[in-house]
């Protein structure tokens, strides 16, 4: 029987683990080196629920680097580049969709 966490997490494609950096709230991505990077290109991509749960658990081990970790969908482009998997993540990566006041 799956754990409650597994029951909640549905993984139907490539995903990464993301969070906000503690010091400034900036968006960061969990890397293969068990570190955080502000660059989505550095993210470790997994494709199964078990892998995602393990990655999330590793990301939550300490909360002095990043907070609020969760599993987010990503898209692998034809050239292998990693892109955010939905509008919310696109905005988290690229910022607001309009010109900021200046």
């Amino acid at each position: 029987m799956a754990s409650p966490q597994q029951q909640k997490l549905k993984v139907n494609g490539p995903v990464a683990v993301t969070a906000n950096r503690l010091t400034d709230g900036a968006v960061v991505w969990r890397t293969a080196q068990e570190d955080w990077s502000p660059d989505l290109a550095d993210a470790l991509i997994v494709t199964t629920a078990d892998q995602a749960i393990a990655l999330l658990a590793s990301a939550q081990k300490r909360d002095t680097d990043a907070v609020g970790a969760y599993v987010a969908p990503v898209v692998i482009e034809a050239d292998g580049a990693i892109a955010p998997g939905n509008l919310r993540e696109r905005i988290r990566v690229a910022g607001p969709t309009f010109e900021l006041p200046h």
Partner: peptide
Amino acid sequence: LMNGVYLQLHAY
């Protein structure tokens, strides 16, 4: 939160 500080999508 008691001081009005939220964590939003990409910043506090």
